[in-house]
């Protein structure tokens, strides 16, 4: 092995300083989950707790419990692109979908999985995104499993985090409804083909007899 060239003491000291700076810089690298300060950890825990309370309320059909986690001025966009504004608007939307004689959804369970730690802006605003698995039992008895995506904007007011905006959607180009519609093309085609064969066969037979 080639020996290292002998360096002057001043150069060695500079290199040591540089190494120390690099070590410090590494230690101060952008925070990932384990490197958060206790205050940051507490903040993210508050956000996780809010998400858990919200999911628990939704899964138990407790709309008022879910609304308690929202800002009075909340903006909510659902997977049918329906938009609800304010707690009353969101409540009306859920009641229309889940309660009464004309309810579309009989039961629902949903999970929310964040993509990563929420991005914090200032100390009173957070943006979180994630995926979702939802199971719906529709009023007609049909079961529907949907993989969704969500974006949540959270604001801290009077020391409490609340949901200011939520947008929930499902991939428009690949989802169970579209797959069912595509299957329908084949089913209708095959069914109509068989029906055409039978009708043509019978008409041909009648013509021959005549």
């Amino acid at each position: 092995m080639t020996p290292l060239p002998k360096m002057k003491p001043g150069v060695v000291a500079s290199l040591r300083s540089a190494a120390f700076v690099v070590l410090l810089a590494t230690a101060a690298a952008p925070a990932i989950a384990d490197d958060l300060t206790p205050e940051q950890q507490a903040l993210h825990q508050q956000l996780r707790d809010l998400k858990d309370r919200l999911a628990a309320a939704l899964n138990s059909g407790n709309i008022d419990g879910a609304l308690a986690e929202t800002d009075p001025n909340i903006s909510f966009t659902a997977m049918n692109n329906e938009f609800a504004h304010g707690r009353d608007g969101v409540k009306q939307y859920f009641e229309k979908m889940m309660k009464g004689d004309n309810a579309i959804v009989k039961a629902m369970t949903v999970t929310f999985e964040p993509d990563q730690l929420a991005t914090i802006y200032g100390d009173d605003n957070a943006v979180a995104t994630g995926s979702s698995k939802a199971h719906f039992t529709l009023s007609g008895g049909m079961e529907l499993d949907l993989d969704g995506r969500w974006t949540a904007d959270l604001v801290k007011q009077d020391g409490k985090w609340a949901l200011a905006a939520a947008h929930y959607s499902v991939n428009m180009f690949d989802n169970p409804l579209l797959q069912k519609a595509k299957s329908l093309v084949w089913m209708v085609g095959a069914g109509a083909g068989v029906a055409g064969l039978i009708i043509g066969f019978l008409l041909g037979r009648m013509r021959r007899r005549a």
Partner: peptide, 10 residues
């Protein structure tokens, strides 16, 4: 499919 089925059946 109906048209094709009709022609073949006829």
């Amino acid at each position: 499919a109906v048209a094709v089925g009709f022609i073949i059946g006829g």
